[in-house]
Every structure is written in C-alpha cells, then in structure tokens.
Design a binder for these strands. Structure first.
Lengths: 236, 236
DNA sequence: TAGTGGTCTAGACCACTCT
DNA sequence: GAGTGGTCTAGACCACTAC
C-alpha cells in the first residue's frame, strides 16, 4: 500500500515545507484549500497532515490552523541546567507560567521518594513556553524538610537553582523514567492541544548527597518539541 | 468538545480492556463488529482505537487485527545489559533476527564518532522481538579497529558482551539522543506496522576508556513498547 | 460573521491474512 | 473465499477563533 494517495500527498507537502517561500509565513493554508488544491477530500488530506505531525514537521494550535514546527529543543534531563538557560542557549525564547502552588501529599511522589504516602509536599504546577508555544506542563513535589518556606519564592525561575542557592541542596542521585504517552485532558488543555495528542512523559526522583529525598517531578511535553540528549562517563 | 462520542467510546473500550474476561483472548473483535455494537461508523470507532493505541493499551498487527498490548518493557540505554538479559529479567521472551551484516562507511556514524566519512564500519542490522512481537529495528556500526573479524561471530547474542569478552573493550563514554518519530517505510515494514506509526528513536555513540570510538547505533522502537529508565549518581 | 479545524455519517473498493 | 484492516469519497453540522 505504499501507493496510497495520502502518502504521495505527505511527500508533496513535505517538499513544500522544505522550500521556505512556499507559504507566506509559518501558517499552512486551510484544510479545505489544500484538499481542493490536491483534488482530494479533507479526510485524506488530514491523514497526510497527521503523518507530517508525527514527523514533527507541523503542528496544530487549537482550532487556529496548522503551523510549520520549529526544530526540537535539545534537553538533557540529567543535568541541573534551568529551562531558561538551555532554551536561551539554543537561541529560543523561554517563558514560564506558574499555574498553582500548594502543600499536599501525593502518592506517586511519596512512593518514588520512599516517604509515607501522607507526607505533605510543596507542590508547584507550571507551564513552560518556547517562542510563545506551550510545550511543557509540569508538576513538582518538593520535600519541605529540604526547603522550608520554598513557596514564598518566585517559581518562574529555576527550582534547582533556588534549592542550591537558598538551601545549599546538592542533587546527587536521580532516577528517571521516560515514556511515550497520550496527553490527558488536563495537560492537553494546558498545552492548547486535543486530548490524546502524543506526548512524552518524564518522571524524576531526586536525592541529595546523604541519600535523603529532595524532589519528585512529572513533566509532560509535546512529543515533537524536544530531543533528549544525555552524555555519560561510565566509572564502573 | 469533551463530549465527542469517540471519547466516550474510548472510555468504554478502556473499561472493557481492564476487565480481562471481556474479550476471549488478547484479540479485539473486528472494527465492523465494534462499530455495530456501539452504533457508530468505522471512522469514529477507529478514532477511539487510535486514542487507545496512543495510550499504549492496544496495538495493531499488519492487517490481522487489534490486540491488547502487554506492559511496556523497562530499558536502561545507559547500561551494558544485553537485550536478552533484561527482557528475560522482566519475565518476557526475547528473540533476535539478524537481517544483514556487511562492511561499509556510514556518514552519521562517522560524524558521531569523529571519523572520516569514508571510514568503513562493521554493520549489523537486526530485528528484536518480545513475546514474538517485533518491537525494535536497529543498526549498529562498529569501528573495525576495535573488533577485528567481528562479523564472524553470532549476532543474536549481545554485541557489547562480545566486545568485552573477545576484545576486552570497555565502554566508557556514551552520548545518547532520543526522540519521538514517525517510523519510515523500511523500519515500519520490518516491525509489521504501517509507515508513519509512532516510534521512539535512540541513537548512541560509544567510546572506550582511551576516548577511542567504538560503536554507533540507531534503534527504532515501537513507541509504546518501552519505558526508558535511567539511574544516575552525580559525581559533579 | 466568516472561516477554521473537530467530529461524524454511510457508504465503497482494495490488499492482505487466515484457513 | 471469507474476513480483516487500509484507504477513500462527498457530503454534513458543530465549537471555536479571528476580525
């Protein structure tokens, strides 16, 4: 079935996307216009668009239309570099919104950090943008004993930077889990996409140099907004 | 639009999938039967199935039908454990097929390893199964100087184990890149799925203790077949 | 209000798998 | 040969965005 029309369509659209002058700006023509231009129906055209979306070449924003996607962000989840730092280092513009802060227990955090399930955490939920596109929804649960009065600070800046500077916490042991997911209703809404859109989920448990639990967080990324990179020296 | 019918359908099917006795075996009824049962059309039903596929709960195999998916495989790409070892450690059944071995240059490998672009490599391409489901298509490019006569061996076993045992190579420095992709025609065919199916791509460049290049590889996974896990001690 | 994407219908034919 | 998923048509209405 490699001669399916929507695959030819995908190829032709991909070629168009690679010639910068094809569309005036980063916005694609409407589905109806494209369907007419390629003499097919919207259903078939949308199959082709979905392919290109899967390849990370285009994305949609709510009901506004389809847009050419920028290159993915390089991200090393094993390092302490703050979001603002590595986004700027790649010539992009970062922005952070704090959606919520409170204090409450959270079972997955407690389990990952080896604490009683009713242990309260400082909880921060935020949304982060690259070039004004929301790409990341995250929640952090910080062990209060490591960072008293944490919630009085400013959380648009790097949390890890604050832990280091205000409380002298060093992040020694990390445990990461990363997998491909379908974004649930809440995260999807925060990112301005349809529920079920492909995402990447990253969960991280962090301990200090004395093996005491410091923090647990859960990140939900638009799946094509990032490229995970890790550099390792094996001392074993 | 949270009241879209296909989302209700998704929920009902998800509930069904969680009651083991709902379907006789791991196979779902045909799309036509499900569409009739839920009084909708195949198009709408397939939207719901696609959601569940994105969540990793079901998968399709060629034109054979839809199947309940097993839990994802835990995989730590920073360790040397062989595929056979960690699959078996999780109570699953591994299998490996060697698709191709040859000697040739490969530009991405040369660039990642810092070698001239016409430098020849031992090249191995293989396909790996978990419980008889093809989940991984990979190519490896090994620097011949590190492992002379490598291609005389058996490549259904661990490559890294052979490098260690036959040539005393230690894997010291690794550089990983991981991103969400749409599977291209060749990988998709090898894995028995449609081109454009969501995948996870993992590229790895490895150097020995003397910072000499050892190997470069490219893995293409079915995106919901695995969960990446990494444990790290920060010595910095 | 006009235009967009999101959802949905009720069919159809094809390539492939299974037996 | 029967049944499956894969692809496609030619429409329709709705919710939301942009103006």
């Amino acid at each position: 079935m490699s001669d399916a029309y929507y695959l030819h369509l995908t190829d032709r659209l991909r070629d168009l996307l690679e010639t910068p002058e094809a569309f005036g700006d980063d916005r694609l023509p409407s589905e109806r216009m494209l369907a007419e231009r390629f003499r097919t129906t919207r259903v078939t055209l949308r199959q082709a668009l979905a392919q290109l979306e899967g390849e990370g070449r285009i994305h949609r924003s709510n009901r506004r239309g389809w847009f050419v996607s920028p290159p993915p962000l390089d991200y090393d989840p094993t390092r302490d570099a703050g979001f603002n730092d590595y986004v700027q280092a790649q010539g992009r513009r970062p922005r952070t919104e704090v959606l919520l802060t409170d204090i409450r227990p959270h079972r997955p955090a407690a389990e990952a950090l080896g604490l009683p399930i009713d242990h309260p955490f400082h909880h921060i939920r935020r949304r982060r943008f690259v070039d004004d596109r929301a790409v990341l929804s995250e929640s952090l649960w910080v062990v209060p004993e490591r960072a008293p009065r944490l919630l009085e600070g400013d959380f648009t800046a790097s949390l890890w930077g604050q832990l280091r500077d205000r409380w002298g916490v060093t992040l020694a042991h990390r445990s990461l889990r990363l997998y491909s997911e379908a974004l649930r209703a809440q995260e999807a809404e925060e990112l301005g996409v349809a529920a079920g859109t492909a995402g990447l989920s990253l969960r991280r448990a962090i301990f200090d140099a004395h093996h005491r639990p410091v923090e647990y967080d859960e990140e939900h990324w638009l799946h094509n907004a990032l490229c995970i990179t890790v550099d390792l020296e094996n001392t074993a």
